[in-house]
Write a protein that binds this DNA or RNA. Structure first.
Lengths: 346, 346
DNA sequence: ATTTATGCCGGTATCGTTTGCGTAAAATAA
DNA sequence: TTATTTTACGCAAACGATACCGGCATAAAT
């Protein structure tokens, strides 16, 4: 089955005109007489004429659609970001085409290739947690594809980037722990080569140092699957909580990691914050209602999506090659709640 | 800036052949000599040739893309459903184009119109909570657009539908309340004309009747915005909890309503389940970690997305007009947890 | 009366790809 | 040798829309 739409040719035939006349009448050209225009416009309206976007795309060499590559749609942060992207795209007349990498490097490459070959005008992407080599992105970039990197940004310069101040976010979260009396603070982070991981772990260690707390490498954990696999977190937690010098606080640097830590503690009857404090990066709307209510670092996901989409569309519609690439860094919010409340003096 | 791709014409020029020969060589036609084929294939591979999908779409009158219209992407249920849709689409070589209605009737109409005019091959949609009149969908359907209705389905027959057994889900949830000793069970539902609302309220009232509990119309509430506006729920809760015969349990029939009720109770210091029991429809992954852990009706969102996408693509690729429309109804899961635990005998 | 101007419109190429048809050269058959 | 078939390719139209170029009227200017 197929959806048959009326074309300019149909209108031309019906009114005994040429396609060029109809086209011009529809675009309100001065070369067409008012009477003809009226006839054409009326007929077009009556028959619900819409220009075929595919024909237009072929002619204009642009598709008015942008691709979005994220690791997982069903994730609060990314779905909020896509929400922002969609809202901008809608305003500017662009389609949003979605692809997921599922945090798999090979799938990221194929998805990116797929989006590019589907002739999108540009791509917004956040790299997978397995990605340490950016040559596939570089290659696409060199071939002239409009790209904007967001959240988990790439490490080369000539590209727009939109991210949050991960360093500061982790620094503040760690400092918050310290101020509340925690001293043995562990950090469970994403894959080690991710930009966000480096920055967050950097902020965490800097805060410790600034408060004269020794950084213990055994208290820094990395997970390749970013918490998508529960066992990964369970193993780390088991390892962390069964050392003689076990941590009294945990900084979880992603949504999934945070949830998994919480679930592990509940299963193992580890009291939060009594036995171990918890601060997590999370964009879930429900964290204030958790038991205990969770101290979270919240990212402005919707805003990131909007800004990234605006930068991309501006770049697409720019006549000349862009030389000045923006590196937008947004602030996070630390919501202080029960899971990291002040420690009772021993 | 634009992404310049190599075309068949470029290959033809480079090798001194005609475009038709190149085209046939690439499609491995018997009319082309092995030597020519090899030359063409090699050159195409070296220069990373990809057929232009837009040109193909124009020729084939199909775009290999499907539209998805949901009320809100940043919603657990819908993002999980989109996840399922994307996975099927990816397997079958289709793009997924996203649009949001934001539960606004006018935006639903324009988004649907937009998707149709962007020449998608078909549309998966869940109507907005404001939608009581389906004529815009009917109209699109009559014009031959491939449509599959999911979750909040339409009320006419000749269309594929994928939903859950809302009646049974609400019946079971209500029965669960009754078995645990609750008798004054209120129901806070979505907009009254939504299919899912009718079915859920139907299941709720049927369960009450089957257990010889009088149905009190004052205990059934409808919200037009489906909980997207917090005040809507706050008002309903205030009204419900300030009558002389106030409910001892609440059945919340959507994700947002559930969360809002929970938040209201926390703010007003209403103890769950002591003062009022709560069961909610929710697909959030964290409900077991809430305070108290929440009894939920969970929908197979991913599965729904997959099935709906499969039906749509099958319909798109079917040669003849489809006469037999499926009405797939999936089962929900009731996760019994603390928020609805057995009432202490008074 | 002839030229010039102007209003109004049609023909055709173009975007990239596929495909039916035509045909020269080579291979086979008579 | 001539006739016929096969092989291997090119030409051109088509998909829908746009835009350049060109041309025919009628009206105004010389």
């Amino acid at each position: 089955m197929r959806f048959e739409a009326i074309t300019i040719k149909d209108i031309a035939k019906a009114l005994g005109l040429s396609t060029s006349t109809v086209s011009r009448a529809l675009r309100d050209s001065y070369e067409i007489s008012p009477e003809t225009k009226e006839k054409v416009l009326l007929y077009a309206k009556e028959n619900n004429y819409r220009p075929n976007p595919i024909a237009l795309s072929l002619k204009e060499k642009r598709s008015s659609s942008i691709g979005v590559l994220v690791c997982e749609i069903a994730n609060s942060f990314f779905s909020q970001a896509i929400n922002g992207i969609e809202s901008v795209a809608q305003e500017k007349g662009y389609n949003v085409i979605i692809a997921q990498s599922k945090d798999d490097f090979e799938k990221e490459i194929s998805s990116l290739q797929y989006l590019a070959s589907r002739s999108v005008d540009g791509i917004l992407f956040s790299v997978s947690s397995e990605t340490s080599d950016f040559s596939h992105v570089q290659h696409l970039h060199q071939r002239g594809m409009n790209l904007v990197s967001f959240d988990r940004v790439v490490d080369f310069a000539d590209i727009h980037k939109v991210s949050v101040d991960n360093y500061k976010a982790a620094y503040e979260a760690t400092t918050h722990f310290i101020k509340n009396g925690y001293t043995k603070i562990a950090c469970i982070a994403n894959a080690s080569y991710l930009s966000i991981t480096k920055e967050r772990v950097g902020g965490y260690t800097a805060a410790l140092k600034d408060h004269n707390i020794a950084v213990n490498p055994d208290n820094i954990f990395f997970c390749l699957h970013g918490g998508l696999v529960y066992e990964e977190i369970a193993d780390i937690m088991f390892q962390a909580m069964n050392t003689k010098n076990k941590p009294d606080a945990i900084l979880a640097t992603s949504d999934k990691i945070t949830t998994s830590v919480l679930r592990y503690c509940q299963q193992q009857n580890i009291a939060i914050p009594k036995q171990v404090g918890l601060v997590g990066f999370s964009n879930v709307e429900l964290t204030d209602l958790l038991a205990p209510s969770l101290t979270v670092v919240k990212q402005p996901a919707y805003e990131m999506g909007r800004i990234a989409a605006e930068l991309l569309i501006k770049q697409i519609e720019s006549k000349r090659q862009i030389k000045d690439f923006e590196d937008v860094v947004l602030a996070t919010e630390l919501h202080q709640r029960a899971s990291s409340e002040k420690k009772a003096k021993p």
